[in-house]
Design a binder for these strands. Structure first.
Lengths: 221, 221
DNA sequence: GCATCACCGTGACTTGGTCACAGACCCTCC
DNA sequence: GGAGGGTCTGTGACCAAGTCACGGTGATGC
């Protein structure tokens, strides 16, 4: 990919006036972030507005007691609008953002971001839409944590996080962090799923055996 | 209050250039919203950007099964930025916003909102800060639902929602919706608090007897 | 008065979270 | 290859919270 055409990756940016798009491409730089990079976190803030071209970033909340819960993931074609917003004002940020699979991202300086917001209704729409989607998802997350059964949520995660061969390389502890619960609880639930022939577990890995059954469980409520 | 000076209510707007402030005041109208008004909800969207001068708006998520959970409250001096953002793009909105205590608000048409965003860095900062604060709070809410004990969360709510005389006119069901739990659970928790002399309950009301003790409980973790 | 409805109390049971500890697996270094 | 240490998983006992079913009780209206 040349640095001249990355705007193509973002449907919301395709309608930008050509001169503005050119200006944006010039003022930005494409960076590669290795897996494990902590993009932001308590006491650590990004200096740029980030647009993800490739890879995923996991955003998780860490509680005082050390427990974790995954809030959402940012994937290719999406922006880290939230983190930027946090830069722009209030910055008491407890959550952290970690690169999960090696990422390629476009970094836009704050000044350029500001100018784009000022000059382009399309860019504004792009940014605000990203906000809306994120917040709507957070609302759904809250609802699920509060009201959904854990086996159903776990089934959903297994389906969402496994690759196309039904493989998933995560420990029970990591899955517990996904759902904001305890490791033992995940172990028990996985054990029951295995007993019912839906999955097969091994150290640090889960394999889906009966996708249909798992899917039924995931859609129970 | 005259319609000429409402910008004074919003610290973030005081730095607006005078001519822009004048323009804003002219293009807006001050509306009164009686308690119980549903400002937005599934299948119902606000046509204006709203700034709250007086009163409070409760934003809650309603699940398919009819259960409710209060997500946050918008109070005087704050904006409903989120709802507007949702207007601007993605609008699959499951949550609803309900006027809790009679509200006075400034309604700004979408076009004017857009122009302000375009022309004023101060206004942008105002809007983005509102976003950040909201999202940070949602993160904290998720953490509390996932990891905090219910008695602690209930104690916090009682303190936050009671008036200065320690009175609170809410049913157990309403308190349960605040916390995203079941009515019976709240009843039991309140009963235990009463047994310990922290509160006194009557039909549809709670009175705080020992604020210090309740405060201790609220700050346990 | 008494019928009705919203609100509250309670017991039995299920699900989920906590704690303590025991194995099992894996890697590295002799 | 075997010893040792770290990570990961399994399990039982117990506690906290959510669900279900039902009964009681206070307010309100006719």
């Amino acid at each position: 990919m040349t640095s001249a055409d990355w705007t193509e990756y973002f449907p919301g940016l395709r309608t930008l006036p050509p001169d503005l798009a050119r200006q944006l491409v010039q003022a930005s730089r494409v960076v590669t972030l290795p897996a494990g990079t902590r993009i932001f976190g308590p006491g650590q803030a990004p200096e740029n507005y980030l647009l993800l071209i490739k890879g995923t970033v996991r955003v998780q909340q860490v509680s005082d007691s050390g427990r974790e819960i995954v809030l959402y993931r940012v994937s290719a074609g999406e922006s880290c609008a939230l983190t930027t917003a946090c830069l722009m004002g209030y910055e008491e940020y407890q959550a952290e953002g970690i690169v999960e699979t090696e990422a390629t991202a476009v970094a836009i300086a704050r000044s350029m971001f500001d100018e784009l917001i000022a000059s382009s209704a399309e860019f504004r729409k792009f940014v605000f839409t990203a906000f809306s989607v994120r917040i709507t998802n957070l609302f759904r997350t809250i609802e699920e944590i509060a009201f959904s059964r854990l086996d159903i949520r776990l089934a959903q995660r297994l389906l969402a996080l496994s690759d196309d061969r039904g493989q998933l390389a995560m420990t029970h502890q990591q899955l517990a962090s996904e759902l904001g619960t305890a490791r033992e609880v995940v172990s028990r639930q996985l054990h029951e799923m295995q007993r019912r022939g839906m999955i097969e577990t091994s150290r640090g890995a889960v394999r889906i055996l009966d996708r249909a059954a798992l899917d039924d469980l995931a859609h129970l409520a």
